[in-house]
Amino acid sequence: MPEVIFNGPAGRLEGRYQPAKKKGAPIAIILHPHPQFGGTMNNQIVYNLFYTYVNRGFAVLRFNFRGVGRSQGTFDHGHGELSDAAAALDWVQALNPDARSCWIAGVSFGAWIGMQLLMRRPEIEGFLSIAAMANRYDFSFLAPCPSSGLFVHGSEDRVAPAKEVISIIEKVKTQKGIVLEHAVIEGANHFFDGKIDELMRTVDAYLDKRIGTPRENAA
């Protein structure tokens, strides 16, 4: 898994990129939690999501938002981070011009950024939003949500309570054929401490349903 540096709007961005083994494979980018609260591309959930897509044959990128790790720039309260995510997607697409589809996955703050990117990039056909902070960030821009995807929360999340988040999700209007699903991991907090294996089983079950069970690159 090569370390990569690519150009972002505020300078160089640091990432980890795993190319696909097959030409025309789908691509995925993974967005990490809040930079000012310790979020990095090495977050355990981000790391697990990265390899979930790798094992399904995707070309996958995870990266540090501006001001995190070796990425240049400073925290920009979401505006610049959305630009970083767009630049990351551009970079992966340039390497994979024949990619047949694109997915995005985000954790906490990264879920908010990912859903905004989803609204701007019609090529994104699926998403995973883990511990989306819909009680702290405005998700009303999903009007309507253009792609099907999965929201996952912990029942004991005190940062973004599942009850509040689910009520917001249920208000989001969808286009015909678009399905928003949500799953609650019992006993899990915002960081899914001790529950990451259960979280990933839920994610894998959803991806099996959406894109098929075979894991072409599984070890």
Rank of each mutant, 00 (worst) to 15 (best):
G114R: 10
D98F: 07
D197N: 12
L150I: 09
I30C: 03
A99E: 06
K163A: 14
N42G: 01
I178V: 15
Q175W: 07
P214E: 14
G73F: 02
I196L: 09
V107K: 14
S101W: 10
E186Y: 07
P9A: 10
D197V: 13
D98C: 03
F191E: 12
D204Y: 07
F63I: 01
Y47F: 12
V4L: 05
F50S: 03
W103L: 10
R56F: 12
R62W: 03
A143Q: 15
R158G: 02
G194V: 10
E123S: 13
H34L: 12
N48D: 11
T174G: 06
V184A: 09
I30Y: 02
D98K: 14
P161C: 03
G78E: 01
K171P: 00
T213L: 12
K176R: 14
D90R: 08
H153M: 14
G177P: 12
F109W: 08
G80P: 04
L142E: 02
E81C: 08
R210D: 04
P161Q: 05
Q72Y: 07
M133T: 15
A134K: 00
L61M: 00
M200T: 05
G154K: 00
H34W: 14
I30M: 03
E216V: 14
A205E: 12
G24N: 10
N64M: 11
S148H: 11
G38P: 04
C145T: 15
E198P: 00
H77I: 01
L13K: 01
E3D: 13
R136H: 15
H79L: 14
G15H: 00
I113M: 06
L117A: 11
G154F: 02
V165L: 08
N217F: 04
I211A: 06
A219N: 05
G57W: 07
I169C: 09
F151P: 08
A205C: 07
V46G: 00
D193I: 10
K176I: 11
G38E: 06
A132L: 14
R121E: 15
P33S: 02
R201C: 03
G126M: 10
P35M: 10
R66A: 03
G80W: 02
V4H: 04
D98P: 03
E123G: 10
R100N: 13
D76N: 13
G110L: 05
A143M: 11
V179W: 08
R210F: 05
S71T: 04
N217Y: 01
Q93M: 13
Y137N: 12
A86V: 13
L95S: 05
C145L: 14
S129T: 08
H190R: 07
N43Q: 10
